[in-house]
Design a protein around this nucleic acid. Structure first.
Length: 265
DNA sequence: AACTTAATCAACCGCTTGTTA
DNA sequence: CTAACAAGCGGTTGATTAAGT
């Protein structure tokens, strides 16, 4: 590590690192409230904080800003993150702009801890075509169903009967998703978006899904029969609990339409 | 209760991009 | 045009907390 590099100046010698104290937070807040954001090196210099400008900026943006929302990421937010990531990739800051109050850091952490974990459990690369297709055709549709189900249920709790959809089959060539309105078969490898960026692990042996044991009732589990093998892992679509009333059917259909639009592009 | 492992998230680092002189 | 500096971004690390044994 370069922590022990010879400092360039006396100032750099006593630069503080690590977790912020309450006093530091207070100082930074007070300074920004008076002088506004920006010129972070000046903030660091004139506020009396022994922190780098970068550190001050990060602390303000990720923690001290009044708009920052913390806590569980709701189902709606998860859905947005997945969809926007499928469109923009690791453009965390751009994605964060679409989620008011959420920081790029938080979204990045969510992706790494929740989404990449699934990829790991499924033994496929997070950038592989299979995983991305699974996200688009398994995870996202099921999130949508959960959101719909939650919005239908007055208590906000997902209703058991709403979980009628299932992935009946995933092969290297096709994913079949079934729900009350019928079954949809997609050939992911034919989609332009999917075929572009192949990764080394694209050949990961994801041949089918026989079980999606997560927080869903048993009725949500996949059909049997057409599966030729198992994914070595489970889908765990865990979510935030808060349901926001602004997230209505109209929004859901808008997002669904976006999915179709993506497919067409 | 003690220990280990896993999960989470704040913060740092290095690189890139934008701005200004 | 270009060099220097500041700000922004994404990747990574490490400390803390929670869960499991």
């Amino acid at each position: 590590m370069d922590v022990y590099e010879t400092p360039q100046s006396e100032e750099e010698m006593d630069v503080r690192k690590g977790p912020w104290t309450e006093e530091e937070d207070f100082t930074l807040k007070a300074y920004v409230n008076i002088h506004g954001e920006g010129r972070w090196n000046s903030v660091a210099h004139f506020s009396g904080l022994k922190r780098t400008g970068k550190s001050c900026r990060l602390r303000w943006l990720n923690y001290l800003r009044p708009e920052v929302r913390r806590g569980n990421i709701s189902l709606q937010e998860q859905l947005l993150i997945l969809q926007l990531h499928s469109r923009w990739g690791n453009r965390w800051s751009k994605i964060a702009q679409q989620l008011p109050g959420r920081t790029d850091n938080e979204i990045k952490n969510y992706w790494r801890t929740r989404v990449q974990k699934q990829a790991k459990q499924l033994k496929c690369d997070v950038n592989s075509k299979q995983f991305r297709d699974a996200l688009r055709y398994v995870w996202i549709p099921r999130l949508i169903e959960r959101i719909c189900a939650s919005s239908e249920s007055p208590s906000g709790q997902p209703s058991t009967t709403a979980y009628t959809g299932c992935i009946s089959n995933i092969t290297t060539n096709q994913i079949t998703y079934e729900n009350t309105s019928g079954s949809v078969q997609v050939a992911p490898s034919l989609l332009p978006e999917s075929s572009g960026t192949s990764s080394d692990s694209q050949d990961a042996q994801v041949s089918s899904v026989s079980e999606l044991t997560d927080s869903y009732p048993n009725s949500m589990q996949t059909g049997s029969g057409s599966c030729s093998g198992n994914l070595a892992g489970t889908w765990n679509i865990d979510g935030g609990e808060s349901m926001e009333s602004v997230w209505n059917e109209e929004n859901i259909w808008f997002l669904r339409q976006q999915l179709y639009d993506d497919d067409l592009n």
